[in-house]
Nucleic acid binder design. Structure first.
Lengths: 329, 329
DNA sequence: TCAGGATATGAAACCGATATCACATACAGT
DNA sequence: ACTGTATGTGATATCGGTTTCATATCCTGA
């Protein structure tokens, strides 16, 4: 059933029906006629038809590298909360860390499908940049800083620095590092730089043999920890770029009888629910993921309202959650 | 730029452009002309305009009660994987466990916005039923069994039964229970019934004083465990409806020096990543969440292809992950 | 040679809404 | 009485595509 059939059924004009759904001028008697007919027929205006003419989709495209990750799902929750309040729905694309899908989703969103785009991704390339600037709707990047675009990001360098410093201040002198792919500027490169800054500032040198690059998984953390402890120079503290990596490393320590924090202090980033529950509660940098999602959504909303054109960058603060894994005297 | 402007720019007819994007008959020379103009202009056909006429949205609505939950994000990942392969996008609604938003989303999806709907919800009412049957597109429910509709669900009763039996078989004789809201048929009622079945079969009786109802959170598990241990009749084994609840209970035990598994065996349901990493690794029923999502998506796909009209129910099996928390001799 | 299918084409109707327009009425202020 | 503003109305153009239709050409096999 379309609007003209429905209008006939209700005994009003097509325009009246359209006005009913769009808060235009409408007399009460017509309103009642329409409501009665609505009861009888269950008519619903077609979303795409109204979008063709009005150009308003009330939809925001969200591109994610993964779904079942605590940090990402928290960010998404923040996004969904803020946009939901404003009547926006989410068109979600899970790229499964596939570069091609990231690109093809950005292409997809050029078909006037969405009023705005929020992009979470780990590695940014020139192709991203070119597609983002071709975009006809506002876009916000969450979790990474990408020059020339609207961003909400964390202070990854600071967080890594503080956590490493925390351990060095307690007397550790052979710091080890398990990080992520340095092409990922936030979780990979910046956290590495933060670690290195703290080590250097403490008057120590970064031992390349005590630095590993892992994937974002517990298994990978376990393997890299094994590798770290196979060398001669045994570390006495370990900074991991994520809590998951740290959890894997701790699993290895538990198996091998390496005592935490006595033999090895260890900390992560992200302050996951799991970290608090490990056999030794994990010290971690608390990043405000949900806030990042919320702020990203707010930034997008304001971009969608006025075409400010000014590019904004927001960096969120972090907190230090100190627990037993670094509780050495 | 619209299709007729673009057609003029490319030097072909509007029909030719439409055919180019829809694999109709088209001569190679026109194809080349169009591709060249595409390079020059970056033209993209409007999604909503094509949807008005063709009725195909290539979109599936997914209604979730929450985003940042491991089980739900796993299900969603399964859904997204299968539908993504078939070229569908997800229109995601996070209801934040708000009953009204569940209903309003179902309303939303009646505007010809999606080709199908997947619904995850905890509590089902007559209103859900009535809206689902008014739906003009196929729908599949994941995680609950709801008579008369397509469902993919877990064997919650069996899982709870097996986990409880596991502990009783090891000699426990004062079984306790921390469950979820019984209006949630799957995680609340069925898991309770499974617990009760195992207890009764073992020749024991269910002690109401050893049965609590918690929320789906660690904090709530902690509180309910405290309450359980405040009574005179101390339990020697504890079945929790979720791993999160179990983790909270274990936290309490750790604080109070209640030894696991010696003083208290404990197990959960869901086999979360966290459960394996707790200070005593948690025994749990492994539910195949991602598979549930995948199967739900496949079921929806087949419904969207042919209007079978037959209602199907698929119940997935579960596995038992036995770990130290029930390792009593 | 001719029937008939596959390929190819562009004009025009159509999808189901909203926006515009010209116009009607009621009522307040001058 | 006259003007201006807010409210209310329905016919119709319009949004940007797809589908239909009438028609043309090429090739194959009988």
């Amino acid at each position: 059933m379309n609007i003209s059939e429905f209008a006939k059924e209700a005994g009003v004009s097509v325009s009246a029906v359209s006005r009913y759904f769009n808060n235009g001028y409408l007399a009460d008697d017509k309103r009642a006629l329409i409501e009665a007919a609505l009861e009888r027929t269950g008519y619903m205006p077609s979303y795409s038809a109204r979008t063709v003419r009005s150009k308003v989709t009330k939809l925001v495209g969200v591109i994610l590298p993964k779904l079942s990750s605590e940090s990402i799902s928290r960010i998404t929750e923040g996004i969904s909360e803020v946009l939901g309040e404003e009547g926006f729905e989410l068109l979600l694309v899970n790229t499964a860390n596939d570069y091609k899908r990231e690109i093809s989703s950005l292409e997809l969103f050029r078909q006037n499908r969405v009023d705005g785009v929020i992009l979470l991704a780990s590695v940014f390339t020139d192709l991203h940049r070119s597609l983002l600037s071709k975009m006809r709707v506002p876009a916000v990047i969450v979790g990474q800083q990408f020059k020339g675009f609207n961003c909400v990001c964390h202070n990854d360098l600071g967080a890594a620095y503080s956590m490493t410093k925390l351990m060095l201040d307690k007397g550790a002198c052979r710091p080890a590092f398990i990080g992520a792919n340095p092409e990922d500027k936030a979780a990979g490169l910046d956290r590495r730089l933060g670690f290195e800054k703290a080590v250097t500032e403490a008057g120590l040198t970064v031992d390349p043999k005590l630095c590993e690059t892992a994937k974002f998984s517990m298994d990978s953390g376990y393997e890299k920890a094994k590798h770290l402890f196979s060398g001669k120079n045994r570390p006495d503290c370990l900074f991991c770029a994520t809590d998951n990596i740290a959890a894997g490393a701790m699993l290895y320590c538990r198996e091998k009888g390496i005592l935490i924090p006595d033999d090895l202090m260890i900390c992560g980033v992200g302050d996951s629910r799991m970290g608090k529950m490990l056999y030794v509660p994990l010290s971690s940098a608390h990043l405000h993921y949900k806030t990042a999602g919320k702020e990203g959504a707010k930034m997008l909303l304001s971009e969608m309202k006025n075409e400010s054109g000014v590019c904004r960058i927001m960096q969120l603060k972090y907190d230090i959650s100190e627990r037993e894994s670094t509780a050495r005297q």
